[in-house]
């Protein structure tokens, strides 16, 4: 049964914004055993166009608001929440017991930081990153590229900018693809 495998799995999610909040909720709904989430940011009104938070959570720390929301969906998920800005040292410390790490940052520099840290320090772990999710439409351009234990979800083209903003539909598609890739790895791993 898929549920017996999910309950044994631990997934780390680096960032609790558009990607991280949606991927976490998807994994919580299917019954993931453990989630380790980290972010330093606070929920703001402009986040509500794509992130899994609510109006009355504006001003709250994202990781604690997300932990609450996960608990409202599935109280049996063991959630460890870290309110901090990740760097190579804290990535190693926080995610060392995870089977899979989902990269859910905003900035390309941070995406590269965690990919390099995981590939160097945890070559046996899986990392699922996202690249290219701005704008709208173009469903069939979104895909997953695999390079050994590194997976990249997105269209690999649409960098976020003023004219190509991050919005719920496409960000949600990519976040759920990351969750779906983690699900597939868990089914093969356990």
């Amino acid at each position: 049964m898929y549920k017996d495998k999910l309950i044994k799995a631990c997934v780390g999610i680096a960032g609790s914004g558009g990607l991280g909040s949606n991927a976490a909720i998807a994994l919580a709904r299917i019954g993931i055993g453990q989630l380790i989430i980290a972010d330093f940011d606070v929920v703001s009104e402009s986040n509500l166009n794509r992130q899994y938070f609510f109006l009355d959570q504006i001003g709250q720390k994202k990781v604690f608001a997300l932990k609450d929301n996960i608990g409202r969906v599935n109280p049996y998920v063991n959630v460890e929440a870290y309110d901090l800005k990740l760097n190579p040292e804290s990535v190693i410390r926080i995610f060392k017991n995870c089977d899979i790490i989902i990269e859910a940052f905003d900035l390309a520099e941070m995406k590269q930081m965690i990919i390099e840290t995981v590939l160097t320090e945890f070559p046996e772990k899986y990392i699922i990153a996202a690249s290219g999710l701005g704008g709208w439409g173009r469903n069939n351009t979104i895909k997953t590229e695999k390079y050994d234990n590194l997976f990249i979800c997105g269209d690999m083209i649409s960098e976020v900018s003023d004219i190509c903003p991050p919005l719920a539909p496409r960000v949600g598609v990519v976040a759920n693809m990351q969750a779906n890739q983690a699900f597939e790895i868990i089914m093969n791993l356990f």
């Binding site: 905003d106 900035l107 990919i115 690249s131 701005g134 997105g154 690999m156 649409s158 960098e159 991050p166």
Partner: peptide, 10 residues
């Protein structure tokens, strides 16, 4: 070889 270019957005 993989040469992967990450794009901002999330």
């Amino acid at each position: 070889v993989a040469a992967i270019h990450m794009l901002t957005g999330g």
